[in-house]
């Protein structure tokens, strides 16, 4: 029995911890501001943080793959995708061409960074930092100012609420669904495909994974392409919900994403963690933002401070856990 509990804690401890942190932060908010107890506040977390959820999913896979894996280009990609799609729509290009084009662009840029990292042995930090500069720079080259989107298809996606069955007055938008769908895709990839298991294996020990005959090089390129896909989708969701494109969108979102991933129990050294934890990491971020909004008087920078403190707590407790499980 004790053995079982130990195994359970070793396997799911980090995830449970994130869940506990999320629930306590959420209930604390509910105690402070009774208005926060409305169901819609919960759904707002998904609406407001749909882009963050998307880039964090991609980020999780990249970090899991190890070797210092990180993708700093996600915020820049959102800026580029939103600006490029706004400019294309303004020029009269059909959204049914723009949307696939943006996705292809995201995947291609991600794959390019993956290729640079894998083949030219450039540190992921550097390669994706260049990616960040490039994407954000390109966004400004397309337009120095914000470009409004007036396209009907985009407006429909942005403004049609979907009512949640059985809960009165609760709704989400079509764009809100993209994040959870990608989450399911990522769960499937992580646990039920050779691609996902290779990510975990190489995250633990790249050399061993290679000697086991796993396709390490291909997987590394694909994982950055996957992150590129997630950021492109995030860019589309972002531009749909704000009905605009701008080079300044999502500034610093790469850091929020990394924090969410880490709070979610994924180790920066790779091979440990999963996307489910990341979901709660993102929800924690959203909850702190909501609390500050309900308060109304505090600076929005308290979000960053709150996230920072919680990240430290989460990492601290996790390392205590891992020390203990190692000893046992």
């Amino acid at each position: 029995m004790i053995e079982r509990i130990k195994t359970f804690v070793a396997r799911y401890g980090a995830l449970l911890l994130t869940l506990v942190i999320f629930l306590s932060v959420y209930f604390a908010g509910g105690q402070l501001y009774p208005a926060m107890r409305k169901p819609q506040v919960f759904f707002n977390l998904f609406i407001n943080d749909s882009s963050l959820l998307l880039v964090s999913i991609g980020m999780t896979m990249v970090i899991l793959s190890g070797g210092g894996g990180i993708d700093l280009s996600v915020g820049g990609m959102i800026a580029l995708v939103s600006t490029a799609s706004a400019a294309l729509l303004r020029a009269g290009v059909s959204p049914f061409i723009v949307l696939p084009l943006m996705i292809v662009m995201g995947v291609a840029l991600g794959a390019l960074m993956g290729w640079i990292i894998q083949s030219l042995k450039v540190q992921p930090f550097i390669a994706t930092l260049m990616g960040l500069f490039f994407t954000r720079g390109m966004a400004y080259i397309i337009s120095l100012t914000s470009v409004t989107i007036t396209n009907d298809v985009y407006r429909t996606f942005a403004l049609t609420p979907i009512h949640i069955p059985f809960i009165s007055k609760a709704y989400i938008y079509p764009t809100t669904l993209v994040g959870p769908i990608m989450l399911i895709v990522a769960i499937y990839l992580s646990f039920f495909t050779r691609f996902g298991r290779t990510i975990y294996a190489m995250g633990n020990n790249e050399q061993s994974a290679m000697l086991m005959g796993l396709p390490v090089a291909r997987t590394k390129i694909l994982v950055y392409a996957f992150s590129g896909l997630c950021s492109a989708l995030a860019g589309i969701v972002f531009s749909m919900s704000l009905l605009a494109g701008y080079g300044q969108f999502a500034t610093g979102m790469e850091l929020d994403a990394i924090a969410s991933v880490v709070i979610g129990g994924t180790s920066l050294s790779g091979g440990v963690g999963n996307v489910i934890g990341t979901l709660f990491g993102v929800l924690i971020h959203g909850t702190i933002v909501s609390i500050l909004q309900f308060n109304g008087t505090l600076s929005s920078w308290w979000t960053r401070i709150g996230v920072g403190v919680l990240t430290l707590i989460a990492i601290g407790i996790q390392s205590i856990f891992s020390v203990k499980t190692k000893r046992s």
Binding site: R194, T198, Y200, A201, L211, M212, L214
Partner: peptide, 25 residues
């Protein structure tokens, strides 16, 4: 040992020739 410690023993033995069903492991 050139294996990965974070994944299960079964995966360490089978990965690369793992059985599939309905497109998943």
């Amino acid at each position: 040992v050139n294996l990965c410690t974070n994944i299960s023993v079964a995966e360490n033995i089978m990965l690369g020739r793992e059985p599939h069903r309905f497109g998943s492991i």
